[in-house]
Amino acid sequence: MDQDIAIEVKGITKNFGGYTAIKNLSFSVTKAELFGIVGPDGAGKTTILRLLMGILLPTSGEVMVFGVSVGRYPEKVRESIGYMSQRFGLYEDLTVEENMEFYCDLYGVDRKERKRRMEELLDFSGLYPFKKRLAGHLSGGMKQKLGLTCALIHRPDILILDEPTAGVDPLSRRDFWRILYGLRNQGMTIVLSTAYLDEAERCTRIGLIYRGEMPMLDRPNNIRSSLGISMVEVVLSETSRARDILLRNEYVDMVTVYGDRLHIGLKEKEQMDSILDMLRSYRFEIKGSREVIPSLEDVFIKRIR
């Protein structure tokens, strides 16, 4: 066994009923890597992370964590992994401190060790002043930090994060990444999923997921240049009116509506700012914008044209 490998995925397939969510996937994550599972919504990112954790069992294939099979010894493997689900998974009616205590209890962190570790984590996450506050009364960014704190409470070697920054303001997002880099420098292996290109670019290596497959596994720069299309996600009101206006613009390739969000395909990435300015001039209230991973269809359509 390779001493440097933290997670090894050996040909996993996952079927849900008649639908194949993950198709014969293999890859490995080395120690102290910041590995990004990157892809558009619905590509199968969360399913892959759940398979890594052993919350889902693969239909075929195997996942090994430090050489131990996840399927056979899930409890043993889980002790070395910290996991943060998409929705943070916090008890909103418990205080910050109570949430942390509860996870300490579940992981069996002993009394003496616990006090020191909680102080340490409260300090490092900046949650110290809020430790008596109910988790439900925290802001999005603070909830996310609390989620991370709870995932780190048992000193895991691997940290798995499912879209950790979805719905978090840009400032907290930057803070959060600073924390992640800090952890990685201490030797922690981090695997995270994201649909955002700016986050994908911060990883050391990314696997691109399209429809349950990983057609590309490379450094962020190589992947970005191979996409050949820029896609911007804009959160605003009146999405369908905005779409009609955008489609008349010469730089806009395509527009897809996802609820309160628009995915705008641009011919040239440099046009992003001028498009946003144009929308503002039409008095749209833009609540946020980020570059996202285009879907396989988008890339495909772009390529064949």
Binding site: R78, S85, R87, G89, Y91, E92, L106
Partner: peptide, 14 residues
């Protein structure tokens, strides 16, 4: 509903 069960399941709880 809140999603905490997923977080529970990744702890060593049986």
């Amino acid at each position: 509903e809140v999603g905490t069960i997923e977080q529970l399941m990744v702890t060593p709880i049986k």
